[in-house]
Design a protein around this nucleic acid. Structure first.
Lengths: 142, 142
DNA sequence: ATCGAATCATTCGATATCTAACTGTATGGG
DNA sequence: CCCATACAGTTAGATATCGAATGATTCGAT
């Protein structure tokens, strides 16, 4: 498949990330949510009253994409948006009761998936893995 | 950002894969193509006359998605589709002259990007990295 | 005090992807 | 032989994402 001496790192990374993301999404659908819904809930919980720019940054998506998800989740009754009275440009996002419930359900699924993923891999091995990921990111920035 | 003891592997993997894929796509756009175009060209070159099911499998996308890319690339004059006379269900895909030229240009960009990505990482380290990727994939299958 | 620049969010239009349904073609068991 | 089943590809409809343009608000420099 490749005109490369070594199997290309990037391709391997992309393929692996894809199958894992798909499996994770399937696990979350099982639990009544989706991957973007989980990421959005997680970002909101980790910093209540953050503005949308900050939430998008935590998730690693653009503001426009987050707006989309928030619209859907607001329609589903998982969250509310309210303008910050101190700075009426920003929308403060907060979870509803239903949003909290969904968060807890998806967290259970996410924790189980993370455990499944780490099976058979030592902490040192995973730490080195994370370091390589960081190095790859660094090699691409700038 | 997380209710996890350890930073979750999957999230780290997904984020890294995303920024690297974006950087790679940018490099390919610089060279006159895109990531899906490159992957399609590469899959065709690595097995001339393969059918679309096989090509999609090599790239890691569904047949329907490949159809989309082939339509666009055929319209651009990069490739041709012809029915296999021995089995009129299958379409044999072949590159045109322009497709060959594009392949060479994008290959140069891809090789340069791969080199940039590996900078500062030993072969052993990358080999172990690839093994962990394989283990993660295995942990998710079935 | 006002106007231009910056900031936050939304809207718009495009691309990539998926699944499911459909079309056309091949094949094998009765 | 022929029909049920399987297979290759396309089409249709949905979701996720991005970048660019727009709207609303704030801030700062003169």
């Amino acid at each position: 498949m490749t005109p490369f001496d070594h199997p290309p790192v990037g391709m391997n990374l992309a393929r692996t990330a894809k199958v894992i993301a798909q499996a994770f999404d399937a696990a979350l659908v099982e639990a009544g949510g989706t991957l973007p819904v989980w990421l959005t809930l997680l970002s909101i919980k980790s910093r209540e009253l953050a503005n949308q720019r900050e939430l998008a940054g935590m998730i690693g998506i653009q503001g426009a994409t987050l707006t989309h998800h928030l619209n859907a989740m607001e329609a589903q009754g998982l969250l509310t948006r309210r303008r910050d009275p101190d700075n009426r440009r920003v929308h403060q996002v907060a979870l509803t009761e239903a949003g909290e419930v969904m968060f807890l359900k998806l967290r259970t699924a996410a924790l189980a998936f993370d455990k499944r993923l780490r099976a058979g891999l030592s902490d040192e091995r995973l730490a080195d893995f994370a370091e390589v990921l960081a190095a790859l990111r660094a090699n691409v920035e700038v």
